[in-house]
Design a protein around this nucleic acid. Structure first.
Ligand SMILES: [Mn+2]
Ligand SMILES: [Mn+2]
Ligand SMILES: [Zn+2]
Ligand SMILES: [Zn+2]
Lengths: 165, 165
DNA sequence: TAATTTATTGCAAAACATTTGCAATAGACA
DNA sequence: TGTCTATTGCAAATGTTTTGCAATAAATTA
């Protein structure tokens, strides 16, 4: 049990599912793309290998992978309707390795980080509220190092290029 | 300059806009509803007063209020497409009074909280990454006190009622 | 107060991301 | 190789938000 495809195949077999060529391609796309690709991006990637594949197949597969803990979706503010799926690099972990994100409002670059102090913040909230916290979503928005520099040079934001998506 | 309607009217006048009966109703709805209403909920609320009002008018007004810093949108995970607007209780502040949220996955109740330690977490991220952080979004998900109790009594979640929406 | 200007509205249609019903296809297993 | 049925492709539906446009009504002017 090593590659993503194999792990998924095993889980699939356990519940009477089938490993198909489409699912194999989508899993490879997740590994090759990394980062936080959208369903659309994954679709375009697999379409190069296999032009016949359908967008709804991508959605169905992504949903199954999510329900089975292989990937996790993320949402970033204005992108109201776009889902970005965590790469399936750390498989079968329900929690993200470095769960927190920073997103540059100028170039859309995403940085990941972790901070042990979050744990105490959550613990205190639980004590005070009586609630039981299962998941934590922390996202910072602003300008990445590169964009912050460009910004300060040219006065009011010239919306420079260098986009990631 | 005291009520929300008056503040908005002033801003409107400053930029050649007009205070309409529809906008007045929507602003009253924001005050009366409080919490984190959706566009749809605001629409239903104003429709009771004035059945002729149109959903797109609600959206257009909400967008204008957002662009002008009177309200702020929030997104909560699975509700992929629903926007919840912060009430306009604290007007003309670009930052939310208590910026962090907890949302119960069982009853959808939302609790708000603040924690001064977040500031140091953000500051450290800025130092290490070189990025400039403008906004912080922290959302916790889990079970509120009430739902946590019910849950523990009855074994596997019976998805009890008492919904907020 | 009436006329003028044009921002705003209601309406219907479009946009956009995602889901779903269904008949055809193709994995898995005997 | 044949059987069973999970999965696919396709087209249509869904749910939310936006947009074009002619009609309406705030605000300003005469
Ligand atoms: Mn990530
Ligand atoms: Mn809030
Ligand atoms: Zn940047
Ligand atoms: Zn609850």
């Amino acid at each position: 049990m090593d590659t993503l495809v194999q792990q998924v195949a095993t889980r699939l077999r356990d519940e009477g599912g089938r490993m198909t060529s489409q699912r194999r391609l989508i899993l490879q796309a997740l590994e090759e793309l990394g980062g936080h690709p959208t369903a659309e991006e994954i679709f375009r990637h697999v379409s190069r290998q296999s032009p016949g594949i359908n967008l709804s197949t991508v959605y169905r597969t992504l949903n199954w992978l999510e329900e089975n803990g292989f990937i996790a979706p993320r949402w970033f503010e204005e992108e109201r309707r776009r889902e970005r799926f965590e790469p399936a690099v750390q498989i079968a972990r329900s929690h993200h390795p470095t769960p927190f994100h920073f997103r540059c409002r100028s170039c859309n670059r995403i940085l990941e980080f972790a901070d042990p102090r979050m744990e105490e913040i959550v613990a205190q909230f639980e004590r005070r509220s009586g609630a039981r916290v299962k998941d934590v979503e922390l996202t910072l928005y602003g300008l990445c190092q590169t964009c912050a520099k460009t910004e300060s040079l040219s006065g009011t934001s010239p919306h420079h290029e260098g986009f990631i998506r």
